[in-house]
Computed example of a mutant assay.
Amino acid sequence: MRIGTADSAVLLDLLDRRLVCALQVDGRAEPGRLAEVLGVSVRTVTRRLARLRETGVLKVVLMDRVADEAVGALLLRVRVLRGRVETIADALAARPDIPFVDIMLGGEEVSAVALTDRGGRDRLLHRQLPGTAAVVETTVHSVLHLFADAGQWRGGWLTEQEAAALAPAPPSTPPPLPDELDQRLLARLADDARLSAAALAAETGAPESTVRRRLHRLAAGGLLRTHATVDPRLLGMPVDANLWLEVPPGRLAEAGRVLAADPRVHGVVACSGPANLMAAVFCVDYEELYRFTTELLGPLGVHRVETAIVGRAVKRAGARLVEPGAARTGGRPPREGRSGTA
């Protein structure tokens, strides 16, 4: 397996891609289960997983209960002075209430998603961003409805049967109210969702049997939903675009459902503003993005499309991504904190 920079056209091989896609289905799947479904040895799975994670190419994190928090979330488009985009993107990515940050192609705009309370929203929009000299303009859209989120996207390298075999059981109980131990477990899994019960027991000081019961209860309540974070360019999809769409109100729900069902879409929401629908799309090349626009969007009666190309993904689902070149050396992104320009 060769791993290089995303710009070097060095891609993960077929087994690596299938392994990443398996973890998209269930990020906590045991190596034995992964090996059985993928048709390889447990040793191979263990070795590949270790290499992917140690290089920082793959990170499996807990996915927030986005469906509960999405409505009212903010979609930010921040225009920045040339040469300051990295500073603003890093400052936004350092905030725990901002799980998604992208630098758009051209280097003058940062796109972000903010899940924050009213106080945090007002501080960010009315004081922090306007008070930053590098910020030229901020456009804010509120999410009105969630059709699909990043946790539902699949890279497409598994068969339907393989994906079904790996799919975890749906939540069977209402979400539990986490106590102190649950919160400690969730906090550790938020950064590394593949930690075993034994590792969690060692870190928390709780008996392993207790940790296993707690994990089972949290999973049954839908609190262990995972997200396998990987640069889509390493899966053969180098074009990452945000499409801002104007759709007739009478066709908005239909358009959202159609887009959510398309395997190239990794997020779609109805939102406020002139563009009432936003879809995030991964494509193999620009020609495929063109076909997506003409063949899928055309029949939906879309009045207008603004296509914004992502130059670099900085943070996805709460996880900082390895910067170009860092994977080759085993480098890791900086730890997140609350400080920063924004």
Rank of each mutant, 00 (worst) to 15 (best):
R33K: 13
A220M: 00
L105Y: 05
A6F: 06
L245W: 01
G39A: 13
V284Y: 08
A228Y: 10
F292C: 07
V305N: 04
D16P: 04
L75D: 11
N242W: 08
G32K: 05
P174I: 00
D7L: 11
D68F: 05
G151F: 09
E54V: 06
L177Y: 05
A255Y: 00
L215E: 10
G222P: 09
L49A: 03
T293N: 14
V143Y: 13
A327S: 10
Q152V: 06
E162C: 05
V61E: 03
P238D: 05
V57E: 15
P99Q: 01
E246A: 15
A73V: 02
E180L: 13
V265Q: 11
L129S: 05
P324S: 02
T46R: 15
S41I: 01
D68R: 12
A70D: 12
G337Y: 06
L245A: 08
A253F: 09
D117E: 06
M1E: 09
S209L: 12
R316I: 07
L81P: 00
D262W: 05
L235T: 08
A260G: 10
I3P: 10
V113E: 12
V20T: 04
G151S: 12
G221F: 01
R225S: 10
V42D: 14
A261M: 09
A93K: 11
L223G: 02
M104F: 04
P178K: 10
A280V: 00
R338M: 11
V136W: 13
R53H: 03
L34K: 03
P170V: 07
A198V: 00
R82S: 10
M237K: 14
A94Y: 07
E287W: 06
M1I: 05
A165E: 14
V45C: 00
A280W: 11
P238W: 10
V10L: 15
W153P: 01
P174H: 05
G56E: 03
P174F: 07
T44S: 15
V135R: 06
V40W: 13
R77L: 01
L129W: 08
G131L: 06
V66M: 14
F292I: 00
L289Y: 00
A114R: 01
V269N: 07
V302L: 05
E137V: 00
S196H: 07
P96A: 01
F100Q: 08
L234V: 04
V322G: 06
G298H: 06
S111H: 13
D117Y: 09
R51G: 10
S209M: 08
E108W: 08
E208M: 09
G311T: 00
E254H: 12
L74Q: 04
G72C: 05
G331M: 03
T307H: 11
I3A: 09
G27T: 03
R335A: 14
V101W: 04
L243W: 03
G256E: 10
P263F: 06
D26L: 07
M278G: 06
V239H: 14
E287S: 13
E336R: 15
P238C: 04
L189E: 06
R127F: 10
V268R: 08
M237T: 09
